[in-house]
């Protein structure tokens, strides 16, 4: 009944701009899996939620993720997605605004907007796709490149320590935090679902395989299947990580739900309260 020639998966038919697919990602790139996590979250949340969702992304391979969704999407500038998203959320408070950024996009060039969006606790869902380097520009060091790793701008090995996004954002004031890898398919999808429902700044870091650069340069594993095995091997659930020493945690990826708090006021609501207050006073 279906021809294999131009077949698309159910989720693609339902949610994606199939006329511009296949997408531009390399074979085996984990960004496609992140797309699927998002779509499966919406499959469970229902069509109403999907209809009131908008996407914003930055520049990088990861910035292309939402461009394939049949939904309003802004492909902004490198690092600036959260500024656009904050204003969009304020202007249309009923929208679910989902922001997809790379590690360099969010923690490198966009670091300022990242901490301030978390500080304000704006009701956004930030999906941060970490591949441990800059990939769209061809494999340079990023704020998450492991120390010692060789990239195109660290030919003698990376001397810079990493950001721990979870700690950074907790200190900044985010109210929902989780980290998974593309191997943790179901968990990540559930976290995305929770984050969309959460009122406040939610960030989910998803470590994904970039076989083309991270695979070849950092891990010596150009095959996406080997990278998936590696994710399985090095990821440590949060509970277990708490019992481990810093030395033992070297080179591991701690995964789990890091934070879920509801005690901080959400920014959009506060802004609308100010408007109400100003209008009651009637000007003077």
């Amino acid at each position: 009944m279906f021809s294999e020639r131009d077949f698309e998966h159910y989720l693609a038919k339902k949610y994606m701009r199939t006329e511009i697919m296949p997408h531009a990602f390399c074979p085996g790139c984990g960004l496609g899996i992140i797309e699927r996590m998002i779509l499966m979250a919406f499959e469970e949340l229902g069509e109403e939620e999907w209809k009131r969702t908008a996407f914003v992304s930055g520049i990088g391979c990861s910035g292309w993720v939402p461009l394939y969704f049949r939904r309003d999407a802004a492909h902004t500038l490198h690092g600036r997605a959260l500024a656009f998203a904050t204003a969009l959320k304020l202007s249309k408070p009923d929208l679910n605004v989902i922001v997809v950024m790379g590690d360099g996009d969010s923690m490198g060039i966009g670091g300022n907007h990242l901490i301030h969006a978390a500080r304000r606790n704006v009701d956004l869902t930030a999906i941060i796709a970490t591949n441990m380097l800059y990939s769209l520009t061809g494999g340079q060091m990023s704020p998450t490149t492991p120390q010692g790793a060789r990239t195109n701008t660290t030919p003698y090995g990376n001397i810079e320590p990493n950001f721990d996004l979870m700690k950074l954002l907790e200190a900044a004031g985010a109210t929902y935090l989780a980290r998974w890898t593309t191997y943790h398919f179901v968990q990540a999808k559930n976290s995305i679902k929770k984050a969309i429902k959460h009122k406040g700044f939610a960030a989910i870091e998803i470590v994904f395989q970039c076989p083309t650069y991270a695979g070849r340069y950092i891990l010596g594993k150009p095959d996406p299947r080997d990278m998936m095995d590696w994710f399985k091997e090095v990821s440590v659930p949060l509970g277990k990580a708490k019992t481990m020493s810093p030395e033992e945690l070297q080179g591991k990826i701690v995964v789990g739900e890091f934070l879920h708090r509801t005690d901080r006021p959400e920014y959009t609501e506060q802004v609308y309260k100010i408007i109400e207050k100003a209008q009651k006073k009637g000007g003077r």
Binding site: E4, F7, E8, M21, P22, P27, G28, R225, M228
Partner: peptide, 16 residues
Amino acid sequence: IIVSDKLCKGCYLCIW
């Protein structure tokens, strides 16, 4: 089990 000619890039994650 359908595998699309249009979309499959041959990464074999499905096989994995």
